[in-house]
């Protein structure tokens, strides 16, 4: 049986200041898979992600996230959808006025009836998953860039969301932290059945975690398929991207 689709985008077109950023973008992400959106700088990856999250109003096209048409959601439906999503922002986007522990515990405290001591233990565990238990009482301004990213991931997975969005999770991380982050994403996928939609440039990360690739070039989807097929693709931009990886391996 074909896995259920967690994200479906059809004919997404978007313009800013009369410049067309996305041109008839269509792709889908399946349940329990890691889907990676790839592409050069300015290809529209982050714009796609922001559309999926409902942060940019949809003007043309159709988007379904977890089976819901995001253009026709009431406020309550949107909230209920947001509660099922984890979002890992590129710069962490932790609230500076809260400690790392409070940041991670925020969705749990706000949206569940779990007693506070248990929330604290869950937060400690989540921070432990990203090797950041010691930062529980620290403020985001006291963390390095890599630590901020890991703390942001802990917050994104605080509620064990069925769908996790990651915007450039590996950027700025050292290879060891990147590998452990990838392993964590794989564990979340395998054990919790979490679906992941990721925007990344890190080829090593793509090779480790990706099940499905969507390649954007100048606002258009030029390739969609598995990593194996992507590596064999004749599409010039995809070929160029993976040839860089092959050269690095040599």
């Amino acid at each position: 049986m074909e896995p259920q689709k967690v994200v479906e985008v059809k004919g997404l077109t978007a313009s800013f200041d009369e410049k067309e950023i996305l041109k008839d973008v269509s792709f889908s992400a399946k349940k329990g898979e890691v889907t990676v959106i790839l592409g050069g700088s300015g290809s529209g990856k982050t714009t796609v992600l922001r559309h999926l999250l409902g942060l940019i109003p949809l003007t043309q096209g159709h988007i379904e996230v977890l089976g819901k048409d995001i253009s026709n959601l009431t406020e309550d439906e949107q909230l209920s959808l947001y509660l099922q999503l984890g979002v890992f922002y590129q710069n962490g986007a932790l609230l500076n006025s809260l400690t790392v522990g409070e940041n991670v515990g925020l969705p749990l405290n706000q949206h569940s009836k779990i007693p506070k001591p248990l929330v604290e233990e869950i937060v400690t565990m989540k921070l432990g998953l990203v090797n950041l238990e010691y930062a529980y009482h620290m403020f985001p301004s006291q963390l390095s860039g890599g630590m901020l990213k890991r703390a942001a991931l802990a917050r994104a997975i605080a509620m064990d969301p069925p769908l996790l969005f990651c915007d450039e999770p590996g950027a700025g991380l050292d290879p060891i932290s990147l590998e452990s982050l990838d392993n964590l994403i794989l564990n979340l996928k395998n054990l919790l059945g979490m679906s992941v939609l990721m925007v990344t440039h890190e080829v090593s990360s793509i090779m480790r975690v990706a099940d499905h690739i969507v390649y954007l070039d100048e606002g258009k989807v030029v390739f969609e398929g598995t990593v194996e097929n992507a590596m064999k693709s004749d599409e010039p931009s995809v070929k160029a991207f993976f040839s860089v990886f092959r050269n690095q391996q040599k």
Binding site: T124, G128, A135, L191
Partner: peptide
């Protein structure tokens, strides 16, 4: 088996809390 794996991955019973 999968539940035991989850217990192992998420089971932080021995994690020491960082005290204020």
């Amino acid at each position: 088996e999968i539940i035991r794996e989850k217990l192992e991955l998420f089971g932080y019973e021995n994690v020491e809390k960082v005290s204020v």
